[in-house]
Computed example of a mutant assay.
Amino acid sequence: MSTAASQAFSTAEREAVYRVIHERRDMRHFSGGVVPDAVLQRLLGAAHHAPSVGFMQPWRFIRVRDRSLREGIHALVEHERVLTAQALGEREDEFMKLKVQGVLDAAEVLVVALPPGREQHVFGRRTLPEMDLASAACAIQNLWLAARAEGLGMGWVSIFDPLQLAALLQMPEGSQPIAVLCLGPVEAFYEQPMLQAEKWARRAALADMVFEDHWGQSPSSSSIAGENPPPLHPIE
């Protein structure tokens, strides 16, 4: 048995991993309810086990439970929604019809932020300082996948002024909010990404995203960038 085979999960476990990746959705419609503390703890634990450049762990989570704070966040998002629509020009009306947040409806609201003092972490960031943001995004993805596995919806809202949100939440100087996460029970998960269903955009072809050796050069094996993933078979 090869080393890879001996280290692999079972077929059912691997299928579950791929399933949660493909069925994760950026949710905007929530049905209230609650997220039990034990489940929320598991989700945050999953986020905290994300990889990070230089093991800097640049994620901080603010659980927003106060209704007035939620309303304040909602107002910030709505204000930026109008400005974003205006910046889109001819797609302004189309954009304003989209639902972009569930801050007032979701069972939980988590604000993810980068902490102050990140400049001290040079390992892996000397030439790419934005790796703190990339690392925090990995934590958000972990939480997102874990939430889907728990049957909970999650939506990442990024339409807000970060300085205003930081002030609202009394964050220290040098910190930076990067996401408002709406989390909780949903009536149903979207069959496809909401923006695709609304004909705002569509998933690009994988074949257009994969190169070999040089930019724009197609892979020598056409199956690497095929449209349909190969079936999952037990490793012998």
Rank of each mutant, 00 (worst) to 15 (best):
E130W: 15
L133A: 14
S220M: 10
S31W: 06
L110G: 00
A188G: 10
L44H: 02
P36E: 08
S6A: 15
G151W: 07
T84W: 00
M96E: 04
L40Q: 02
F30K: 03
E130G: 12
F95D: 00
W144E: 05
R202A: 14
A50Q: 05
L143M: 15
E173Q: 14
F55E: 07
R126E: 13
T127F: 15
A147E: 03
E173F: 04
H74S: 10
A134S: 09
P185D: 06
S2Y: 05
A50V: 04
A46I: 04
H121L: 07
V111M: 04
G216C: 11
G102A: 12
V17S: 05
P230A: 11
F61D: 05
E23T: 15
G89D: 05
D37P: 03
R202S: 14
A16S: 11
W215Q: 08
G153D: 00
P231H: 08
Q101E: 14
L206T: 14
L128R: 09
E236V: 13
D213T: 12
T127G: 11
L88W: 05
R126G: 03
A4Q: 11
E90K: 05
S10M: 07
R125L: 09
R81P: 01
S221G: 12
E236D: 15
L44V: 12
N142Y: 05
S6T: 13
R14L: 13
V103R: 01
R60I: 02
Q7K: 12
Q164T: 03
L128A: 13
V35A: 05
S222W: 08
A5N: 14
S135I: 04
E108A: 00
R24L: 08
E236H: 13
P172G: 09
A204K: 12
H233T: 15
G33S: 07
A137F: 06
E94C: 01
A46H: 06
W200K: 09
I140F: 05
G33D: 08
V20R: 02
R126P: 01
L114R: 02
